[in-house]
């Protein structure tokens, strides 16, 4: 059951991502991506990571993608994307390159790991919390500082300069 579900969800994630990267309209792309992320979240759950699955939905699909949508709409990129979508000439070499890379890495993995399967595993939120705040307490602090700096940086970059520069471009 879980195995079948895994392959179905993998296919969904790959197809959704494929649509995402080929859409001309960025809003459509983001929506497809959100769909892919949902599939990915359930994959996480299947692999024994319920907390990560929840965060995938909450943080990625819920927060980050909404941020993207917000910026796209604020910059009014959605209705008339000024770009002509990338044509064959641009996609063909990129796709070839990506395919070559994929073949390389899959071959590499096949040579290395063989056929061993993943045993069933379940990480409870309690285990997760212990490990997070005991072993990786310092890393948590570092990451939280990074988030703080990112917030300050984002504010600084995106601040409204109109106060200093009247008549500046909106």
């Amino acid at each position: 059951m879980a195995t079948i579900l895994f392959y179905i969800l993998s296919a969904v994630a790959i197809v959704a991502t494929g649509f995402c990267i080929t859409r001309r309209n960025p809003v459509h792309a983001v929506i497809y991506l959100v769909q892919g992320f949902f599939a990915l979240a359930i994959l996480f759950y299947l692999l024994g990571a319920p907390l990560v699955a929840a965060w995938e939905v909450i943080i990625y699909a819920g927060a980050i993608m909404v941020l993207f949508l917000f910026v796209i709409m604020m910059l009014e990129l959605a209705p008339d994307d000024p770009l002509p979508g990338p044509g064959w000439q641009r996609w063909a070499p990129v796709a070839l390159l990506a395919l070559a890379l994929l073949v390389c890495s899959v071959l590499l993995l096949a040579v290395e790991s063989g056929k061993s399967g993943i045993p069933p595993y379940y990480a409870s939120p309690r285990t997760f919390g212990y490990a997070l705040f005991k072993e990786y307490a310092l890393a948590v602090e570092v990451v939280s500082f990074q988030l703080l700096f990112a917030a300050v940086g984002a504010y600084y970059v995106g601040r409204n300069e109109r106060g200093r520069d009247p008549g500046g471009t909106p």
């Binding site: 392959y7 641009r90 056929k115 399967g117 993943i118």
Partner: peptide, 27 residues
């Protein structure tokens, strides 16, 4: 044991290189 680990990593690799293709192709 739901799937071989290679399959998971293969899916991840497909996703990864699709992302790379997106970065290279889109402007």
């Amino acid at each position: 044991m739901i799937v071989p680990v290679l399959h998971v990593v293969a899916v991840a690799a497909i996703l990864f290189f699709m992302g790379l293709a997106c970065i290279l192709a889109r402007r």
